[in-house]
């Protein structure tokens, strides 16, 4: 089975090679003329006076944390789903318990307003 991954690795190399190759080719043929204003960060023509990397809404962190929790829990379901034929009723009950706990956390997040954007 590891043999099946060799083409994937090859594809990764080819894709990286393709990206770098096109960038180099384009770098060789393009024209370039220096202009101070052209190289400024775009802000609709106004000269930016502050750094762009300022503070941003805390909600993005919240979404990121919720993502980690829910996505990991989803990944736990993958092996279960594959061998559901063998697990049958036992697997179903186990997963319902797991999902119940997951939904409890979800409902908690919902009630606390973590899922509201505004």
């Amino acid at each position: 089975m590891p043999d099946a991954y060799i083409p994937v690795m090859l594809f990764v190399l080819v894709a990286i090679g393709f990206a770098i190759f096109t960038l180099i080719i384009s770098g060789l043929v393009q024209s370039s003329r220096y202009n101070k204003v052209k190289l400024e960060p775009y802000e609709c023509g106004i000269e930016p006076d502050t750094d762009a990397r300022g503070r941003y809404s805390v909600r993005y962190y919240l979404i990121a944390m919720l993502f980690v929790i829910f996505d990991v829990e989803t990944v736990f379901m993958f092996p279960w789903a594959v061998i559901m034929d063998e697990l049958a009723l036992f697997g179903l009950i186990e997963m319902l318990v797991f999902l119940f706990i997951l939904v409890l956390g979800y409902v908690y997040a919902w009630r606390k307003g973590a899922l509201d954007w505004v």
């Binding site: 990764v12 990286i16 990206a19 384009s26 043929v29 393009q30 024209s31 370039s32 400024e40 960060p41």
Partner: peptide, 27 residues
């Protein structure tokens, strides 16, 4: 046209990350 166009790196940008990002998104 896109190959022949000038490829700008803004002065404030992080040069290497700026090039890495499109590769990381395409691969």
């Amino acid at each position: 046209k896109l190959i022949l166009k000038e490829d700008i790196t803004p002065t404030k940008a992080d040069k290497w990350m700026f090039t890495l990002a499109p590769i990381l998104s395409l691969v």
